[in-house]
Amino acid sequence: MKRAHLILALIGIAVLILAPIGQKNYIIYVLCSWLMFSIAAMGLNLTLGYAGQVSLAQASFIGIGAYITSLLTLAGYHWVFGWLAAMGATFVIGLLLGYPALRVQHHFLAFVTLAFNTIVFLVLRNEEEITGGSFGLVGMPRPEFFGIKTMPQLNFYYFVLVLFVISAFVFWWIVHSPWGRAFKALRENPIRAESLGVDTRRITLLAFAIGSAFGGGAGAIMAPLVQFIEPGSFALIHSLKILLMVVVGGAGFFYGPMLGAAVVIILPEFLRFTEGYYLIIYAFLVIVLMVYSPSGLIGLGSKLMARFRPKQEVRKDMAKGAQL
């Protein structure tokens, strides 16, 4: 890790440690929610931003993770088991969802994943015996670690922060490993990547599996955070919301999803004083951003930086990608 990056990360963590101190419970709840969605968005950033595989199903993986964790903790198991089971299950289901991606791409793949999200929603709603149907599940306990209860909001925040930092580190590690390079190669030129020995099938499946497992991990946090889950929380609109986070933040950039999640979760809170107008202002800001900087906030940042320190750009006059 470059020194500057490490310092930036440490400052970020310090800010996150101080952020909730002296805040009202509701603000701390919003911050927890932001960290939780950041983890889910990191996963989608891996699948979409790095590996280039469109997915409109991330909310369903949060859902699967949240239901598994809820059922296990309600049955008396410690949260850690719920968390592990949630990540494991979403990894495997994500792997299976990756199979269609071996055959279809882009908007077709978007439709496949969209259909998957809908199926998960229907299963959660209709399998009342297990999932509680439209009423959902309530009363999930917040875990206790070595005698420390996470029931107080501030404690819970630090619990989420630890998980966030672990997730961010794992994410960072993956995208900077040779796997990360293979993901990018898959996004930029799959035929060339395959001809250089990259097993593009395996890498595609892994991109889905790992990205989904991050979703499952976020779901495991959501269960004790909200302490009430119902199928509607994992409907398609929420997958679109996570997609928005990734795109607004900057797909394919490490800090992209965290910034994007901040915009989607925290900004509306700031705009609340405008009463009924906040959604309109919010939508307008997003449109302006996307027009001005398609690569999101990170792209906007590097655009501004480039005024001072010119940066290279990929040329647009050369067709990219191997074609047979």
Binding site: R192, A193, A319
Partner: peptide, 11 residues
């Protein structure tokens, strides 16, 4: 190598 350029442009 391929007839068309085949590098990974953003790397």
């Amino acid at each position: 190598t391929f007839q068309q350029l085949s590098v990974f442009p953003q790397m």
